[in-house]
Computed example of a mutant assay.
Amino acid sequence: MDETIEFVTVARSHDTSEMFILSARLEAEGIPSFVADANINQTYSLLSIASGGVRLQVPGEFAVAARKIIADVNSGLLALDDKDFSE
């Protein structure tokens, strides 16, 4: 019997690039993610507001962990210092 995976929206934005960056961060943490509605928002940017923007979705079982990582990214907790780039 096939198991249905329910995807949950964990972030939404009108900035497609932001959603792809967050998606990459989640993937790096082992959380599968999907950026929904990116193509329509890039192609028809005026429809972005009407369509609700771009959605970042993850399987429901990863939603809590994904929201925590997104909150850490948005708070600057995961930001790099200048010293991280010095030789």
Rank of each mutant, 00 (worst) to 15 (best):
E18D: 12
H14G: 15
S75G: 09
F20M: 07
L47N: 12
F62D: 06
G30L: 00
D81L: 03
T4L: 13
L26P: 03
E61I: 06
D84A: 11
I21E: 13
S86Q: 11
I69M: 04
T16E: 10
A63Q: 02
D72V: 00
I31G: 01
D84M: 02
T43P: 00
S23C: 14
I21G: 15
I40P: 07
A71I: 01
M1G: 15
R12K: 14
M19P: 05
I31K: 04
T9H: 00
L56Q: 08
A38T: 03
D81G: 09
N74Q: 08
R55D: 03
L80A: 13
E3A: 08
D72F: 05
G53E: 02
D15E: 09
F34I: 00
S45I: 11
L77H: 07
N74L: 08
N41A: 13
S23N: 10
V10F: 03
A50V: 10
L46M: 13
K83F: 11
N74A: 10
L22A: 04
F34L: 08
M19K: 00
E6H: 12
F85G: 05
S23G: 15
D81Q: 08
V58T: 03
F7A: 04
G60K: 12
G60H: 07
S86C: 09
A79Y: 02
T43Q: 10
A38W: 04
R12V: 15
G76N: 07
V10E: 00
T16M: 12
D72G: 09
V73H: 05
F7K: 13
Y44M: 14
G30W: 05
L78M: 07
G52V: 03
L78K: 03
R12W: 05
L78F: 06
I31V: 10
K83M: 02
F20H: 15
A71Y: 10
Q57C: 13
E3I: 11
I69P: 06
A79L: 01
Y44G: 00
S17H: 07
F85L: 09
D72H: 02
I5C: 04
G76I: 03
I5H: 02
N39D: 12
G52M: 03
S86K: 14
V10N: 03
Q42L: 14
S33K: 00
E87M: 09
E6T: 07
D82C: 02
V35M: 05
I31M: 07
D2G: 12
F7L: 15
G52R: 07
V35Q: 04
Q57F: 03
Q42H: 05
P32Y: 01
S33D: 00
G30S: 06
R12S: 15
F20G: 07
G52K: 05
A63I: 01
